[in-house]
Structure formats: C-alpha cells, structure tokens
C-alpha cells in the first residue's frame, strides 16, 4: 500500500509543477541553510499539522460524545477529497468561474461548501445505519462495525472511481515567497489560514451557541442531558455532521497540496490524526488542535533530521508512548475508569 506522504513533498509532486519546496533541494541558498531547513520544516509542519488537526477534531468530537473511535473517519478525508475534485472539475466547466479573480474565489468557496456538506451527510448516514443500532452494545461492536464501514468505503472508491491516484488540479497560480531562507508558498499560507479560521468557527460554535452547549452537555453525561430536554439523537447526528465535514475539508487541502488523491489516502493520515487527538487529550477540542499542529511539526522535523523511511514509525511511537505514560493527553483530564 502506498500512502500520501505528508511531510516530504518531494515524493508526490511528480505530475504537476512543484507547489512546495524543501529548501535543501531548491536553488540552494547555502548561506542560510541551517536556519533555512528549520524554518522550512516549521512551515511544512504547520501546513501538515493543520490537516492533522482538522481530521483530529472529528475523532475527538465523536469520542467525546459516544466514547467510540470512529475508525471510518479516515475515509471521510478520502471522500471529501473526491467530492471536492469532482465539484471543482464540474464547476470549472462554467466559464464565469474562471473568468476573474473573485469568481475563482467563489468557485473554491463553493467547492469547499459542497464537499463539506456532502461528507457531513455521509457521516450522518453512517451514524444512522452503522453506529446507532449498536449504541448499547459492548464496546467492541461499534469499533468492528466502523472497520467494516471503512473497508466498504475504501473499496467503493477503488471499484467505482479508480484504483490509481488521480491528479488534483489547482486553478490559481501558486506563488512562493522567500522568508528568512525558507520557501513559503501561497498554498501553504492558504491552508494554514483556512484551517485556523475553521477551528475558530468550531470553537465559537461549541462554546457560545445553544447547540454547542447541548453538545457539551451530552458529552458530559448523555442520560442527564437527555433528561434536561436535549435531543440526544440530534446532537449525535450533528456531531457526525461537523466532524466529517472538517475531515472532508482536510481531504481537499491534502489533494491541493500534494496534487493527487487516491482511494487509500485516508489510512495513514487517519491514524496520525487519531494520534494527534490522543496527544492533545481525546475528547478535548482545543487539545486536538494543539495535538495536530504539534504532531505535524514533530513529524516534519523528524523527517528532516532523523530519517524519512521511519517517519511513520515516529508518529506511532509517539502514540504508544503517550498512551502508556500520559493516557489523558496534554490537555485532557485524567479520568478514572468507570466500572
């Protein structure tokens, strides 16, 4: 299996012109190479971390409310990328959208909106048919069901769309800025900024609105929240809409950043984002954001200074170490096991 590679852009830029650079392979400003590598890896790590964080939010939201690992969440990343690709291709046929700068912006906004809504709806459907019947079953049952959903979706994409990687077009010109020896592309800036905006919206939604309060209440105590008049099923459905929608957005970013998408593109980022959620303290939204950025940074620094071959091992190693020594994560509370 080959997986999209998050921290080493050189591998996947093949068909399209390079959209991101690792400083040590570009024109080689050897003058500031030491700082250049660190700065470059920091920017790459933040971009990567933004995607991890968006995906990690989905894991943490579902875990916070249902106490289950939504194994199929990685497929939301893949599904969002495919819907995004098809929407982009479809809308680009209309001449208006490619005629001017603001129209192009509108095109991308529409693409993200449609892909996020579609992925969100898929998430709600999965919850309704695969998880809701198992809400009172033993803990292993929903996990196995989620693995089944993941297997199903991955193979649906493989059989019905393509078994190869598909190029993901970028319709605007990507510029590269040179800051202190590091190359920052406008794509990276776009990804980091949009990610942060999406997170701020989510954070405000959860902490300020009525529905957000219902979500927090449900995650504290589902039965008590139900007795207080919170419609539990609606809150859970909403959670399964928001999480996948964010995951779908991360999928489009990944497609834009690496230039191609594939049916199994979700697997490795999925596990890493779960790691990010665990690092931050699973069930904690701000923790997932922090964990995502932290893991992205750690990984790209490790890829530069340790070994690219073992960089996936580094993420899994972090997961195991965190779970053994600080299972509550950085921001999570240590909860005693309920009997």
């Amino acid at each position: 299996m080959s997986h999209p590679d998050f921290s080493d852009c050189r591998v996947l830029i093949d068909p399209a012109p390079p959209r991101c650079h690792a400083s040590h392979i570009t024109d080689g400003a050897l003058v500031s190479v030491e700082f250049g590598i660190i700065g470059q890896q920091l920017v790459n790590g933040l971009t990567l971390g933004g995607m991890y964080a968006l995906l990690a939010l989905g894991y943490t939201l579902v875990y916070g409310i249902l106490l289950m690992i939504n194994f199929a969440h990685a497929e939301m990343f893949m599904f969002g990328a495919y819907v995004g690709l098809f929407t982009l291709q479809g809308l680009a046929q209309i001449e208006f959208f490619t005629s001017s700068g603001p129209a192009l912006l509108l095109l991308y906004l529409l693409t993200f909106l449609i892909a996020m809504v579609a992925t969100g709806i898929l998430g709600v459907i999965i919850e309704r048919f695969a998880y809701r019947p198992l809400r009172h079953a033993p803990r292993l049952a929903p996990l196995i069901s989620a693995i089944g959903v993941s297997l199903f979706l991955q193979n649906a994409a493989l059989l019905w769309i393509s078994s190869r990687s598909i190029p993901f077009p970028v319709l605007f010109e990507v510029r590269t800025f040179r800051v202190a020896g590091a190359n920052i592309s406008s794509m990276q800036i776009l990804i980091i900024v949009t990610t942060i905006v999406l997170m701020l919206i989510l954070d405000t939604f959860v902490s300020r609105t009525r529905l957000g309060r219902a979500m927090r209440a449900t995650s504290q105590d589902r039965d008590a929240a139900g007795l207080m008049g919170v419609d539990i099923n609606r809150v859970i459905a909403l959670t399964f809409f928001i999480g996948p929608a964010l995951g779908g957005a991360a999928g489009i970013f990944s497609g834009m950043y690496y230039g191609n998408i594939k049916y199994n593109m979700g697997f490795i980022p999925g596990i890493k984002s779960f790691t990010a959620a665990v690092i931050g303290g699973i069930g904690n939204l701000r923790g997932a954001m922090l964990g995502g950025f932290l893991l992205g940074l750690l990984e790209s620094l490790a890829a530069a200074y340790i070994s690219t071959g073992y960089k996936d091992v580094i993420a899994f190693g972090i997961l195991i170490v965190v779970l053994i020594f600080k299972p509550g994560g950085l921001l999570g509370e240590s909860v005693t096991e309920k009997v």
């Binding site: 048919f129 695969a130 019947p133 198992l134 079953a137 049952a141 929903p142 196995i144 069901s145 693995i147 089944g148 959903v149 993941s150 297997l151 199903f152 979706l153 991955q154 193979n155 649906a156 059989l159």
Partner: peptide, 12 residues
C-alpha cells in the same frame, strides 16, 4: 466491499 458491509450488518 462485501466483507465490509457484512461486518456492519453482522454487528447490528
């Protein structure tokens, strides 16, 4: 694809 669907159905 079939095994994935079966796992979901079996669990339910």
């Amino acid at each position: 694809l079939i095994f994935g669907g079966l796992m979901v159905i079996m669990m339910a």
